[in-house]
């Protein structure tokens, strides 16, 4: 295990988290993208040390290759992340189009429930 790459995973998660904890939807989307990269790298690292591409020779024998299963999973993850990112971008576009803002507002309904509960709790 290469500790340097583990730190890279940590950096990707940390920056991604920082961005996700904000209110601008575009920043949140970029943050999610970074976290997804971090997750992919984590999956890849869990497969062990680097090796040759997992390709079989004519006899069907694979030798000296890296673990193919995490690679398959990462491939799936990349595509899904892309789909989700595209959807969120469409959401940001629509939000901007309708409200001229790409900020994630507080959920007013949630706040009303909380205020109600606070009143009940004090009683």
């Amino acid at each position: 295990m290469n500790p340097f790459l583990a730190v890279v995973v940590g950096v990707l998660y940390a920056v991604g988290t920082y961005l996700v904890l904000q209110r601008l939807l575009t920043r949140v989307i970029i943050g999610l993208g970074l976290i997804a990269h971090g997750a992919n790298l984590l999956l890849l690292l869990s497969g062990g040390d680097p090796g040759e591409p997992p390709l079989a020779d004519a006899a069907g024998v694979v030798s000296g290759a890296s673990d193919p299963l995490p690679q398959a999973m990462v491939l799936t993850a990349i595509v899904i992340t892309f789909a989700v990112t595209a959807f969120l971008l469409a959401l940001a576009y629509r939000d901007w189009h309708d409200t001229r803002s790409d900020e994630v507002e507080d959920d007013l309904e949630d706040r009303r429930i909380a205020a109600l509960a606070a009143r009940e709790g004090r009683r």
Binding site: M1, G10, A14, V15, T17, L21, S46
Partner: peptide, 18 residues
């Protein structure tokens, strides 16, 4: 919070490798 998440994931990555 972000730094803690980053540290946690780094630790998890190292633990997974070990």
């Amino acid at each position: 919070v972000s730094a803690a998440v980053g540290l946690f994931v780094t630790g998890a990555a190292l633990a997974v490798g070990t």
